[in-house]
């Protein structure tokens, strides 16, 4: 049973995941602060619509938000111990995440083909750094979610009373990645 037997009132796992997310918040906060500093200290800053592919990024935003919904649906199915439902929604999450990376691949590919890279300007430096780091976090999330999907096929793991907590933890991480993109998208592309 998952009665949290701790002074905090939450399970150690959940507290641990939130503290991890707190450190990730600090990491991205640093990057956002640097972005603000560099932009305010610059003489000119390009407008997102001119230099980046905003429609493609909008598609990515829709994809990522959808994947957030599918992962919370997977949690809902796991809560009711519906293995088939969980696997279906988790697979959908994985597909959408991979889709995000594919679209990003097109974006980067187009830029690299034009010889644009992090060295081109401060704008591109911060753009590639932040979207790149975000992309690495997506990769990590794919690994975790894929791992959970595999685990659900093994009876010993699916029936473990800790499994729901694991799904929730993975969901928390995934939503965090989504929130970062929610801020990243307007900051880099729209404003």
């Amino acid at each position: 049973m998952n009665n949290p037997d701790t002074h905090s009132g939450v399970t150690n796992a959940k507290l641990g995941v939130w503290l991890f997310l707190a450190s990730e918040i600090m990491l991205f906060a640093t990057l956002f602060t640097s972005y603000i500093v560099l932009r305010m200290g610059s003489t000119s800053w390009p407008w997102g619509w001119d230099v980046l592919n905003v429609p493609l990024a909008t598609l990515n935003t829709v994809i990522l938000i959808s994947s957030s919904v599918t992962i919370v649906m997977a949690y809902a199915r796991a809560y009711d111990k519906d293995k088939g439902g969980f696997q279906k929604w988790m697979a959908a999450t994985l597909l959408l995440s991979l889709g995000f990376l594919v679209v990003k691949g097109f974006e980067y590919g187009h830029e690299f083909a034009l010889g644009i890279g992090p060295h081109t300007s401060v704008f591109y430096a911060i753009y590639f750094t932040m979207t790149g780091l975000h992309g690495i976090h997506i990769l990590g999330g794919i690994a975790v979610n894929g791992g959970l999907l595999w685990m659900s096929t093994v009876d010993e793991h699916w029936n473990n009373h800790l499994f729901l907590g694991r799904v929730e933890g993975a969901g928390l991480y995934w939503h965090f990645v989504d929130v970062v993109w929610i801020f990243l998208f307007p900051a880099l592309y729209l404003l």
Binding site: S8, G9, L15, W18, A22, M26, L172, H175, D178
Partner: peptide, 22 residues
């Protein structure tokens, strides 16, 4: 996303405190 998907609404106060400190 934070309140509904991450279940922060109605979550234990300890988590809220940790996040405010962050």
């Amino acid at each position: 996303v934070c309140a509904i998907f991450m279940h922060l609404w109605g979550e234990n106060k300890v988590i809220h405190k940790a996040l405010w400190i962050t």
